[in-house]
Amino acid sequence: MVLSDNIKNMFASFAPETQMAMDRYTSFRVGGPADLLVLPSTVDQVIALIKTAQKAALPVTIIGGGTNVLISDKGIRGLVVVLTRLKQKIEQTTPSTSTDGHASNSVHLTALAGERLGSLCRYAADAGLAGLAWAAGIPGTVGGAVMMNAGAFGSDMSRVVTEIEVLDLANLETRVLAADSLQFSYRKLVLENSIVLKVRLELTRTDTQTVKEEFYRNLKTKQSTQPVSQASAGCFFQNPPGDKPAGFLIEQAGMKSARCNGAMVSDLHANFIVNHGNACASDILNLACQVKKSVYEKFGINLKEEVKTIGD
């Protein structure tokens, strides 16, 4: 949309970018322009941005690390808020006692939503805190990991999140949600009309060397089995019910290494679509459609996307 000078002036104090290509803000390295883009660094700035957007009647799109999204070639209308600068020093606290009155061995780590999951995972490993080593090598932000219930090696965020702080978009007030009130499922958190601002995890103090060994073992496994050095959005499809993962089905359907212009099904892991440097969003979407069609024709299984497509 064409933004009026009046709307631009309303956001002037936030140092916005106009018509900024989104390719630099996604791991796929594709995406058309955002009408207005801001990278806030504090919770107060996020709240002020949303309030201003509501006054200006602008739609708002929230993006974390851009590692699980595909932005259309036509871009995103309205205001785009990228949360990668919303971070602070990771807080570590230790409950004095457990629920049964004995000394607690648990430790809470608190981080703002823009903190990199990889940074939090490495922090935990260095501090000898068990429970997050499964996240070694997973890109993106902590907030995005919660929203997608990121997981690997048999665990996921739902196992370690103890509470989150969110911004309620209906009244622009913050509220804290305990873990037992959160509706996690496979690669999803049901969170209506809210933005994750802060995350608290509960981990367990243990031997530092043991945690580090698990961390580096998981990291090495990811690096040897997934195209982590190439532009992608991680696993493109959810694993369907049953014991056959999406990557296996795609490979058996003959789609491993399949191409559509600059987009390619990874020859290392078939559930990854990679951008070889000149792909556009439509190439990736077309290739994904071919993959779904081939898997359905061979197995009768309709793969569901894990990557979220946003924009016009």
Rank of each mutant, 00 (worst) to 15 (best):
L172C: 09
E305N: 14
I76S: 07
K188V: 00
D100Y: 11
I284Y: 08
K256I: 12
L219G: 00
L83H: 00
A56D: 09
A179I: 02
A170V: 00
L172A: 06
D23H: 15
G154Q: 08
V2A: 10
P245R: 09
E305F: 08
G242Y: 11
M147R: 13
L36Y: 01
V81D: 08
A111G: 03
G154N: 07
E305Q: 14
G65R: 04
A21K: 12
A111T: 04
N275D: 07
A135I: 09
L132V: 08
E192V: 01
S13Q: 15
L132A: 14
V190M: 11
S98P: 00
V274T: 14
L268W: 02
G66K: 00
L120N: 00
V190L: 13
I62Q: 05
P241N: 06
L112W: 02
I284V: 14
Q230D: 10
Y186V: 14
M157D: 07
K256Q: 15
S155H: 15
H108C: 11
G300A: 09
M147A: 15
G277L: 07
E192Q: 15
R205D: 04
L79G: 01
K198L: 02
N105V: 08
S96C: 08
L177Q: 02
L203Q: 05
L120C: 08
F153N: 03
S106R: 11
V60A: 07
V196A: 00
V161P: 05
A263Y: 06
P16D: 04
V211N: 07
K212F: 11
S232T: 14
A56N: 07
D207H: 10
L36M: 14
V161G: 03
S229V: 11
E202W: 02
Q223K: 15
